[in-house]
Simulated scan of single mutants.
Amino acid sequence: MALPTSVKLFEMAPRDGLQNEPGDPVPTATKIELIERLANAGIGHIEAASFVSPKWVPQMGDAAEVMRGLTREPSVVYSALTPNLKGLENALAVGVEEVAVFGAASEAFSQKNINCSIAESLARFEPVLKRAQEAGVRVRGYVSCVLGCPYEGDIVPSQVANVAKALYDMGCYEISLGDTIGVGTPLAAKRMIEATRQYVPIEHLAAHFHDTYGMALANLYAVLEEGVSVIDAATAGLGGCPYAKGASGNVATEDVLYLLAGLGIDTGINLQAIIDTGYWITGELGRKPSSKVALAKGRVSS
Rank of each mutant, 00 (worst) to 15 (best):
S302N: 15
L92T: 11
A64R: 12
A39V: 10
A261W: 00
I155S: 07
G103M: 07
E203K: 15
A49Q: 08
K245G: 05
T71F: 11
G23Q: 12
V52L: 09
G171E: 10
S79M: 04
A261N: 12
S301F: 11
L167Q: 14
V183P: 01
V156T: 14
Y168W: 15
V77Y: 00
K55V: 10
T82V: 15
C241M: 07
A39M: 11
V146Q: 06
A104H: 01
G237I: 11
V99R: 02
A252V: 02
R37L: 14
E226C: 14
G227N: 06
L129V: 12
G268M: 04
P201I: 06
V200F: 05
S117F: 07
A161F: 09
L259K: 09
A104D: 03
Y199F: 15
T267I: 01
V77N: 00
E65T: 07
T282E: 15
V96K: 07
A13M: 09
P83G: 08
D266M: 08
V160E: 06
A2N: 14
P289F: 04
L263V: 00
E21N: 11
S6F: 13
R140V: 12
H210I: 02
D266N: 09
G23W: 13
V77H: 00
L129Y: 13
G103I: 04
L205V: 07
L88Q: 12
D232Y: 02
E152N: 13
N270D: 15
E36C: 06
L260Y: 04
K288H: 12
A123V: 09
Y168V: 04
E126I: 13
V96I: 12
S229L: 03
N250R: 04
Y142G: 12
D169F: 12
K31H: 11
D169N: 15
S50E: 06
S117Y: 05
V293Q: 03
T180R: 03
S144L: 03
N250P: 06
A294R: 05
G87M: 12
G246V: 10
N250D: 03
H204E: 04
N270T: 03
S158R: 15
S302W: 15
G240C: 14
G184T: 02
R72A: 04
L263A: 00
E120I: 01
E174Y: 03
R37H: 13
V200W: 02
G237E: 00
V128N: 12
C149R: 05
I43E: 06
G182N: 05
E225T: 09
V94K: 13
V57A: 10
G264M: 00
